[in-house]
Design a protein around this nucleic acid. Sequence first.
DNA 1: TTGTACGCGTTATCAT
DNA 2: ATGATAACGCGTACAA
Lengths: 342, 342
Amino acid sequence: MNQPPGSDAPRPKMEDIARIAGVSVSTVSRALAGSPRVTGETRARIEAAVRDTGYVVNQVAQGLRLQRSRQILVLLPTIANPFFAEIVQGIEEAAGAAGHAVLVGSTEGDPAREATLARQLQTGAVDGLVLLTGRIPEGVAANAPIVVISETIPGRNLPTIGIDNVAAAAEAVAHLRALGHSHIAHIAGPAGNVLTAQRIRGWRQALGDHPGGPPIHGDFTMASGEQAARTLLSRADRPSAIFCANDEMAIGAMKAIRAAGLTVPTDISVMGFDDIGFAAFTDPPLTTIRQPRRAFGQAAVAALLDPDDTPQKHRFPHELVLRASTAPPAAAQPIRRRTIHA
Amino acid sequence: MNQPPGSDAPRPKMEDIARIAGVSVSTVSRALAGSPRVTGETRARIEAAVRDTGYVVNQVAQGLRLQRSRQILVLLPTIANPFFAEIVQGIEEAAGAAGHAVLVGSTEGDPAREATLARQLQTGAVDGLVLLTGRIPEGVAANAPIVVISETIPGRNLPTIGIDNVAAAAEAVAHLRALGHSHIAHIAGPAGNVLTAQRIRGWRQALGDHPGGPPIHGDFTMASGEQAARTLLSRADRPSAIFCANDEMAIGAMKAIRAAGLTVPTDISVMGFDDIGFAAFTDPPLTTIRQPRRAFGQAAVAALLDPDDTPQKHRFPHELVLRASTAPPAAAQPIRRRTIHA
DNA sequence: TTGTACGCGTTATCAT
DNA sequence: ATGATAACGCGTACAA
């Protein structure tokens, strides 16, 4: 972080460019800002000086003067989840195109860390906040520029980006029912967040009168999906299909199913949600609901940077991705026992 | 990004705190900096004012004055790869603990984007650079504070964090040989980077006189691994084991193997590299080499922030993780034919 | 079209 | 122990 003492020239500043080009700093500033009120000839001299020195404006000084940092902060539970990572890619693309940089904060679900990170907003280090955590951190100003992706935050009227989770979950379960499944369990996200509730609602809707039992809550990790599936498999009335609230839990569930000596989809169908890259490479490849993640990120940046920011709900289309982890139910477990004794 | 006009109070500045506490700004600054030369009583008044107003120092102004931003930039090929994502987590943890924020730049392998992002360094927006891309972007100052993770950059003597890739690759292949494999192919990373060359060297070393053929180059994606494996499977002398330069390519390879109607590890053993989270959830679970990613990130931050930054090579231990994707070779394909005719 | 002067919010130096 | 002041690098209103 520290320069080897005396080993190199200091960064040139605007003043240096001005001196070299034989003009004043204001002219340099204007030229760099692309102001029309500067002669082609002077501009040429300035540009030459910039090239020669390798000058770039000091964003910190510029930020102080302009009262904006050209930086966006993204708060998310964990960057290790590909679903979030791909949203971040979308954010980065769009932000970069708009001349903004992106800070990421992995909060690991820790409210204290969320608050600490969000403070960046108040310190002027950041122009806007993209929330993937589903809740507003402690202590952010009421008027702060915030946009919410994937989740929904009750109470505050914030621009929100996402799909119709109820409809998407219902569509997933409808697919399972169309296949002939009647006992469809649900491995849900952590209790207490809106997203979890929405997908549960969609599941219930599509379930109709059929049994599903209470949802089992996981935390969106593969390990939690595995654990939840174990619970499900140990029950007397084992489901013939499991709808998981994300792909990682579905991947965990498939592991548990294999471990129990059962086969997907022959014995049990499994569905995920999100369509992360790995979903196409599981065995069998995972049937799931695709969310347009890059588009989420891009829309978020647009909402944040757009002058007329009418808080709006951007609802993107989702897509049912049919792969091989779902199939009609086998003649079902009861039959095995019956064929022996009947 | 823009405040609803007139809807709210401006952020309090140090001057406001000074006025409220009845002291000068210098005293406030000192108090906030924890200087011992300030009375307990005045300090109390200042702290009260800070609490009441919700004041936080303006990092931009502070950065301008102090000539440092307390921000670190991480440049990586793609944040969607869990291997990189987990390194970023380590960086974030350590950076956060040291009061620094982290900017991430997904370069998607685009040199232009790398250069653009790296310019942040010159603009004063960033105090240091962590490189996961394996090459120095165009136009960064020769004396810039940089640390390299996982990769190695020839020519410049930079602090470098990683494992011994040659040894690790050799260990992987030795494991395969110990199992009894003699024809061990390698799906390598993109040609031209040091990491790729190192793992190829390790593979060759452990191969000894046994055939391996030339390595097939992928680009670390699952799709490229799948493609490479297809090529391998179509060859006359199909390998009995494939060592892949990362887990994602191994996952892709396993898909190709299944598609060919073969079984892992019965017909072909597959090894990965990295031990990303998904490696434990594939079917069969992937035997691989674990790299301590969080530790990488933490060490990088330490190297960047440490006053006595003697460019150093930090070599971390790797670990062979035995799972179920490797096994002794079956009596092998030749045998099938021979048993018929012999 | 170009230059001068001030302010953005903070910290460090020098007085007191 | 505390206060006045300059400086960090830049953008802009105003003057020329």
